[in-house]
């Protein structure tokens, strides 16, 4: 109850900003609680009972350090096949994190999935398919003709010598 209230209070104090803005105004936001909304990328990097998440909001990307259990609600991570979960992160921003060798990072207080990730449908491009078939066939015919040309040239040079 107390922790929920605390999170709600922090959330009320913090403001939603983009990662780019955070980086541009890093001195002003240093050690402040901020809220960002971004897509989770690739996978969770587990470190014992803690973890790293990399998130990208389209303006820039940043690492989020958080307890491993917080990541359990994540199901889809961004890569070529998938649009990752979009999450809302309440976190403390460190422009020179002592714990992580001076890295500019976020230490999460709370994360919420605000948009479930999904598989990106990528229909097969028919024009690419057609060009690839035509191109491949043409290049193989050219290769066959080229080999014949080389063979004939070699024969000619053998005869002349």
């Amino acid at each position: 109850m107390v922790s929920t209230l605390l999170v709600l209070w922090i959330g009320a104090q913090a403001q939603l900003i983009s990662i780019q803005e955070l980086l541009n105004q890093s001195k002003a936001y240093d050690q402040q609680t901020v809220i960002i909304e971004a897509e989770v990328i690739l996978e969770v990097l587990e470190r014992d009972d803690m973890a790293w998440l990399n998130v990208n909001d389209g303006t820039n990307a940043i690492g989020v350090f958080l307890p491993l259990e917080m990541t359990e609600k994540l199901t889809t991570f961004g890569n070529h096949q998938n649009q990752g979960d979009r999450i809302r992160i309440e976190a403390i921003f460190y422009r020179n994190c002592f714990e992580h060798g001076g890295e500019m990072d976020l230490h999460a207080i709370n994360i919420d999935v605000i948009e479930k990730g999904f598989r990106i449908e990528r229909p097969i491009s028919t024009w690419k398919f057609s060009f690839a078939i035509v191109g491949f066939t043409s290049s193989m015919i050219s290769l066959w003709m080229y080999r014949r040309y080389r063979k004939n040239k070699r024969k000619e040079s053998n005869l002349s010598s």
């Binding site: 690419k128 491949f136 290049s139």
Partner: peptide, 12 residues
């Protein structure tokens, strides 16, 4: 297909 097209053009 992208790479097939590119390779074909390169070969020819």
């Amino acid at each position: 297909f992208d790479f097939t097209i590119s390779m074909s053009l390169s070969l020819m």
